[in-house]
């Protein structure tokens, strides 16, 4: 298949520390943007469901824009676009904020789907028992929400990790960005990118395995509950 091409893996092997550091940066961005995005998403979902235009219109705009435009566009908007009206952001901040924005929009729809699965009588019963609205959410709604949104959230986290690869285009040194700059020095594009592909694959597999393990630890009664 590859004809007369001779593979040279030495530059890749020598660059192992840089690649692993890049993988660490990717994971760091993925985890932090996912946590921050999910927290925002919870309020976006509540705002969209609130029925008050002053809350639901901006929440809806956030959700629709984040889901109907490419994530790369959202990064461009922060990296190139925002500079016109505000001090421009560096590549780390713009990738970080764009993926947070993206995660928040997608997670908001996952949370809204989960909220639909919880009967409204649950809220009313909790309020009727004298819990304040925040307490009713925290102690009654959220515990029922988590089993419903758990697996879609794991999926969204994987998306968050894969989306960090877009950092390469604005020159961020996450895993893909590091790979890109290394291959442009050594001209070993194929060797570098196949190793990076394998690194992403392993990371996604680890996340999937942790997700399955977490579901057994965190939600031991989830499947039993559904059967009842």
């Amino acid at each position: 298949m590859f004809g007369s091409y001779t593979f040279d893996w030495t530059p890749v092997w020598n660059a192992a520390p840089e690649l692993l550091y890049g993988a660490y940066v990717s994971l760091q961005i993925a985890v932090l943007t996912f946590l921050l995005g999910s927290a925002i998403a919870f309020f976006l979902a509540l705002a969209k469901n609130s029925g008050r235009a002053i809350l639901s219109v901006p929440a809806n705009a956030w959700i629709e824009v984040s889901r109907n435009t490419p994530c790369l566009f959202q990064i461009y908007m922060l990296y190139f676009g925002l500079g016109a009206i505000a001090p421009s952001l560096d590549s780390y901040s713009s990738v970080f904020l764009a993926i947070t924005f993206n995660n928040a929009g997608y997670m908001a729809e996952i949370i809204r789907g989960g909220l639909k699965a919880i009967p409204p009588t649950q809220t009313r019963a909790a309020r009727g028992l004298g819990l304040t609205a925040p307490r009713a959410y925290l102690f009654v709604i959220v515990p029922q929400l988590i089993p419903v949104i758990y697996f879609p959230s794991v999926n969204q986290f994987i998306w968050s990790l894969l989306n960090t690869s877009l950092g390469m285009i604005v020159g961020l040194n996450e895993l893909t960005g590091v790979t890109y700059s290394l291959q442009s020095i050594t001209f070993r594009t194929f060797e570098f990118f196949i190793v990076t592909a394998a690194l992403y694959y392993v990371m996604v597999k680890i996340v999937t395995a942790l997700g399955a393990w977490g579901s057994r630890v965190l939600l031991p009664n989830a499947t039993k509950g559904e059967r009842r």
């Binding site: 994987i158 989306n163 690869s165 893909t176 790979t179 194929f190 996604v204």
Partner: peptide
Amino acid sequence: RSVPLIIQIVL
């Protein structure tokens, strides 16, 4: 599904 699309394209 486990490798970023951008890597698949370059690769």
